[in-house]
Amino acid sequence: MADTITADEVAFQLVTIGSLKASQRLDHMIIKNFLGGALVSVGGMLTLLVKGGCQGLAENNPGLVQLLLGLVFPIGLVMSTLTGGELSTGNVLFLTVALMQRKVAWWRAIKLFVVSWLGNLAGSLFYIIIVHFGDIITQEPYASGTIELVKEKVLSPSWVNVFVRAIGCNWLICLAVYMSFLSKTVVSKVLTVYIPIFTFVVVGFDNSVANMFLIPIGMINGADLSVGKFIWKSLVPSTLGNIIGGSVFVGMFYWYLYVLEIQTVKTGPILPVTETGDQSIPCGMAPAQPIAASTAKHTHAHHMANLSNSALATAADGRGDHASDGTVGDSDSLRSSAFNNALTHIGKME
């Protein structure tokens, strides 16, 4: 079995995962996103320690300090990725491809994003409590480093600056998420996540989830920034920019390149979803159309589309079988089993 899969196979995986994420239990959504925000804050804590401890070096070699920050910040995001934590920035990618493929209802997508964003915020604020009362970054030179970061991230740049930086940031973050699915080994996944995240930190792009931790720490240590200004000039532009960067430049582009063409060849127009209980399921699929035998790519595409639709259908059946007695946990297990079986078959197809 190969250690990697292709980019078009990943695109189909993202469609299925996006649908399953949007229909998962609310308590699971909250916990996963709380953990995601807290683990990213671990990387933020390391960033502040390095920045505060290298102020003398920054005067003569600011580029070297940025490289050091790029080395330590991705640690939190790698931990979140490997352990199943969720981030609103990454969920933008999953929801975009699922919405474009009409495998999830709009209200479900909005619900997941809102819960994800608030869960990340809760996790970040909780980790601020640990860091502050643990007296980790309240002493010099670290405290002044947090204040300096607030100036660099909020006070000095304009609203548009932060917005544009956030677009570039989530373009890279969602690329990291996309690339992590190309490999099946832990080491390869770590590297594929690390490289884009390292890049956005060194450049100085804005991540809304990271800012939920980095900026309030500076405010606690005495930065001249009100809560209202933090929300308007940091959280709002960084969140909007992250949505555009991840949804357009990764989600829509790769959906168009890999999923739309294959779906059109297989079934014609993309079919919408209908609501059964609280589970989004595809409407009746159109019968597959004949494909020229000479087009090997389209033959392979049939398998990919069938696996994706099979996983979704089985997931929907699992939810329907147990909806009457309220046994949500059993349906979750069925959906998870169906999804894992689809991914296993995808990995064997070369």
Rank of each mutant, 00 (worst) to 15 (best):
L82R: 06
G326I: 00
L191S: 14
K111F: 04
G218R: 02
P216T: 05
L26M: 14
I243D: 05
G44Q: 10
F163H: 03
N161R: 03
I128Q: 07
Q55H: 12
L312A: 06
V186H: 06
Q66H: 03
L235I: 07
D135T: 06
L68N: 03
Y127A: 03
A301F: 06
N242L: 11
V92L: 04
I243V: 12
T264Q: 15
I231W: 01
L95Y: 06
L125V: 12
D224W: 03
A122Y: 02
M252T: 02
A293T: 01
M219F: 05
Q289G: 06
L175V: 08
L172P: 12
H298P: 01
V259Q: 11
I291M: 07
N61A: 14
P282G: 00
T89D: 12
A105E: 13
L93M: 10
M100I: 00
L35F: 12
A122N: 03
V209K: 04
F12Q: 09
M179S: 15
H302P: 02
S88L: 09
P272T: 01
K51I: 09
D206A: 15
I262M: 13
L214T: 07
P62R: 01
A98P: 12
V193S: 13
K189T: 15
G53M: 05
P62F: 04
Y178G: 08
A288F: 10
V164G: 08
A22D: 15
L240N: 11
V150G: 09
F198E: 07
L235H: 00
I231L: 13
L87K: 09
F133M: 13
A315V: 02
N221D: 07
A58I: 04
D321Y: 15
G37V: 04
L312I: 05
F126R: 02
I291P: 01
T295A: 08
N33I: 00
I346P: 01
V265M: 14
K348L: 12
V227H: 02
N33C: 07
P269V: 03
L225W: 03
Q139N: 09
T327K: 10
F73N: 05
A166Y: 12
V50P: 15
G168S: 14
Y256I: 02
D206K: 09
S310N: 11
G37D: 05
A301C: 14
L46N: 10
N306S: 08
S337A: 08
M285D: 11
V162F: 05
H300I: 04
D317F: 13
G70Q: 10
T274G: 00
I231Y: 01
M79A: 09
S156Q: 11
T274Q: 02
V259C: 14
L182W: 10
S158A: 07
F253W: 06
T146I: 02
M349T: 01
E275W: 00
